[in-house]
Amino acid sequence: MLTFTIRRLVLSVPTLLFISFVIFMLLELAPGDPLAGMPLTIPDDVRVKMREALGVGQPFYIAFPKWLYQFFVVEPLYMMDAIFGTSWAGDQQRVISWQTRSPVMDIVVQRLPQTLWVVGTAYVVAILIALPIGIYSAYRQYSWFDNAGTFVTMVGFSVPPFFSGVLVIVVFAVWLGWFPSIYDTTHEVTDWASFKVQLQQMVMPVMVLALQITSQLSRFMRASMLDNLNQDYVRTARAKGLGEKTVVLVHVLRNSLIPVVTVIALGIPSIFGGAIITEQVFKVNGIGQLLITAIQANDLPMVQTLTFIFAILIVLFNLIADILHGILDPRIRYD
């Protein structure tokens, strides 16, 4: 297991390097000028200097290693400094956003809590709802509960978040007036009343996201339970007189959860990646919204850094899912 983990970790380095190179080269082609918004009265020689200061127009064999160095060496050093109060980083150049002229990672750290709160809550809620639904619909296959569950998951699957989001806004914010339609990120939780406000504004985005994640997970859970329910060991367990509850909730469930756990692990990068569309609909200024505005404003360092962070997370959680699968299922041995 350990050698497998190490081998996969070593293999993921070239993968990530290649991905970062692809992203970098794609963005190098991008049209647009970071100085386009500057006043026209700036003299040409100053403009050239500003361009140099931003590092625009450097050939890629200089810009790419430089960016890699900044991302993998300078930024972690700054992070250590911020946590432990040291000053290892000195005043080395960080990855600077062209939009705000401030370090990209600072903005990411500012935006991350909003995304984690909304998307993370939705993920947890979805798991809590999806597993029981999946288990029960598999246990009572083709019952009315199963049919209704299948229909609801199909709908949750098919209705895109930009429609379900808008729909719940129309129903719950406009007609019923229960929840605010816009997520206020400046809101601070200080006491019970403000906590209630926070909950209220989280309900709708969480609902939309959770519906989507629930439908995927519960379908998975159901299929996995169905695979296991007809196996011989289940008959053995029943034959030796175990109660139905023990058979289903201990024997079958434990075996069925193995693939589901890996699916859950594979979905975690999307929590950090933020639900780009849902954040856009509810005006949550999290990571996804940051990415959209950065793309629209041609802020290449920001887009590069964000997409690369997503790529790292995806690769990392793929690895974690594989390892989890190996640990949970003794039949799988990677070595």
Binding site: I19, A30, P31, L291
Partner: peptide, 15 residues
């Protein structure tokens, strides 16, 4: 499969 697809799609459309 490891590429973050939606961001890249957006960037590519812009490009």
């Amino acid at each position: 499969l490891a590429l973050p697809l939606l961001p890249l799609l957006l960037v590519a459309v812009l490009l």
